[in-house]
Design a protein around this nucleic acid. Structure first.
Length: 476
RNA sequence: GGCCUCAUCGUCUAGCGGCUAGGACACCAGGUUCUCAUCCUGGCAACCGGGGUUCGAUUCCCCGUGAGGUCACCA
């Protein structure tokens, strides 16, 4: 049995978005499930489109997501190098073989001439086929002209691990370019050579390549190679739009999600469950569960829309099930500036209170700021309150004075506060909706906060009473 | 335009001839002594259309329609 080997082969032209990552996730899952290898190969054969630093950016993204690869540009491996620009000799050798076998020839036309053929076909509303213009006596290939594959058009039927049985007629097989005039191979040629040299068993890629598969099959034959297992992953489309998720279309860098405090596990869970499920009603999958249960056969055949609201929910669910200490470590860099002077014990107490309302870590400051600094008195919180706004300043003052009096005698344990708050309800004859709101607003000046007794307990006696007094002073 | 593929609630999806078409997100209502959130309960909401095949089609077939991909010296 050959070991299962999958690869992720992006071109370093920018960042990775969820669409691209999904292909990587599926390939990674297939390899991990079979205890095989997952390979990263950089397809940097287009020097025009390449952007500086994006190769590193891609590797950083995979590392950050925990999509560890066994072989790659930075880790090396038995089939190095893993950067196509460093493998030019290999492609040259394979290209020579095809030339010698009469299956490749130099393209004598200028780009303008080819473009004219293309426009002609377009005008006739016909698909463009280069082989209709295949030269009878092509010049000797000296490397300055593009090298074209001399195809042998025929009908194909093949099996796709996700899409199932596919077939096409001979009309889609054409003489495509193997090596460009700048000496670099095209994707169409290089990936086939590399997948073979690197012993890749499963080629898992986006659906933009399905139309080219017959060409690849034809090339495999010319090369005398057995094609690997093919799997086509449908695209992820934008939330509203119908277009495939793309950088242009506002798709976000996955690293940005990480930077905003989305958990790698949640992201992987979310990305995998767009287009895949195990047939049960389970929604939350750990990495290991994904590895155990994943199968290409159960991947959705149609494309899916990206819904960030579902990602938010899923990340929140992951955050909620994290042990407090673990969560604390992860949110280290997300605290509001004002938290800098506070110790870990205090911050953990705060974190425990907001854990269940955190969707992603970047929300931490707005959720917790009042625990670390006195917010200015915000009169609109009282004015907009549907019950409090009916009370006079004198009435509000009276209620707060009673609260202050009671809380002054408290030890500020959560239990004692809770008891005293209850006594206060009886004593004042007010409903919690009114009394608790008033105290909550006075002590937090925030539109929302965790439960009152817990909030006061964490805030502590001194600070709580000081804020109560500040609110009282504002009434005076 | 040719070729390929796809088609269940707004979104992600279960379903693989017979189900009151299930779950999740979102949304709405109620409950959990206050707000926000969690949690619980309930609600709204779908088989693209037309023909077949069949005792019976969401499911199988055909034709439409719609959507996506592709037709580069990009990947």
């Amino acid at each position: 049995m050959k070991p299962i080997r999958t690869r992720f082969a992006p071109s370093p032209t920018g960042f990775l978005h969820v669409g691209g990552v999904r292909t990587a996730v599926f390939a990674w899952l297939v390899a991990r499930q079979a205890s095989g290898q997952f390979v990263l190969r950089l397809e940097d054969t287009d020097k025009q489109r390449e952007t500086a630093g994006s190769d590193q950016h891609v590797m950083d993204s995979l590392h950050a997501l925990g999509l560890d690869y066994d072989e790659g540009p930075d880790t090396g491996g038995p089939y190095a190098p893993y950067r196509q620009s460093e493998r030019l000799n290999t492609y040259q050798a394979w290209a020579r073989k095809l030339v010698d076998a009469g299956r490749a020839y130099a393209d004598p036309y200028s780009p303008e001439e080819v473009q004219a053929f293309r426009e002609q076909a377009q005008a006739e509303k016909k698909p463009f086929l280069y082989r209709n213009h295949r030269p009878n006596d092509p010049p000797v290939w000296d490397g300055s002209q593009p090298l074209r594959f001399k195809s042998d058009p025929k009908a194909y039927q093949w099996h796709d691990a996700i899409l199932g049985d596919l077939s096409t007629g001979p009309e889609v097989v054409d003489d495509f370019i193997l090596v460009k005039s700048d000496g670099y191979p095209t994707y169409n040629f290089a990936h086939i050579v590399d997948d073979n040299e690197m012993h890749i068993t499963h080629v898992i890629r986006g659906q933009e390549f399905t139309a080219s598969v017959p060409n690849y099959l034809n090339l495999y034959e010319a090369l005398g190679l057995t094609p690997p297992i093919l799997a086509t992953v449908p695209h992820i489309l934008g939330p509203d739009g119908k277009k495939k998720l793309s950088k242009r279309d506002g798709a976000k860098d996955v690293l940005d999600y990480l930077r905003e405090g989305f958990l790698p596990d949640a992201l992987i869970n979310f990305i995998a469950s767009m287009g895949w499920n195990d047939g049960t009603e389970q929604e939350i999958f750990s990495r290991q569960e994904l590895i155990d249960k994943f199968s290409l056969e159960r991947v959705q055949r149609g494309s899916a829309h990206f819904d960030e609201r579902r990602l938010n929910w899923m990340n929140g669910a992951w955050i909620r099930q994290l042990p407090l200490n673990e969560l604390f470590d992860k949110v280290q860099s997300f605290w509001p500036e004002e938290a800098a002077d506070y110790d870990d014990t205090y911050k953990k107490a705060v974190l425990a209170l907001v854990q269940e309302r955190l969707k992603y870590f970047a929300e931490l400051p707005e959720l917790t700021r009042f625990f670390f600094t006195d917010l200015p008195i915000n009169p609109s919180l009282l004015q907009d309150h549907k019950q409090l706004k009916k009370l006079s300043k004198a009435e509000l003052t009276d209620l707060l004075e009673q609260a202050k009096h009671s809380l002054q005698a408290s030890d500020f344990s959560s239990q004692d506060l809770s008891d005293r708050l209850n006594q206060l309800l009886e004593q004042t004859g007010q409903k919690p909706a009114l009394l608790f709101s008033l105290i909550r607003i006075a002590t937090t000046q925030a539109p929302a906060s965790p439960g009152l007794a817990d909030t006061l307990a964490v805030l502590g006696k001194e600070r709580s009473l000081k804020r109560l007094q500040a609110q009282l002073d504002a009434f005076a």
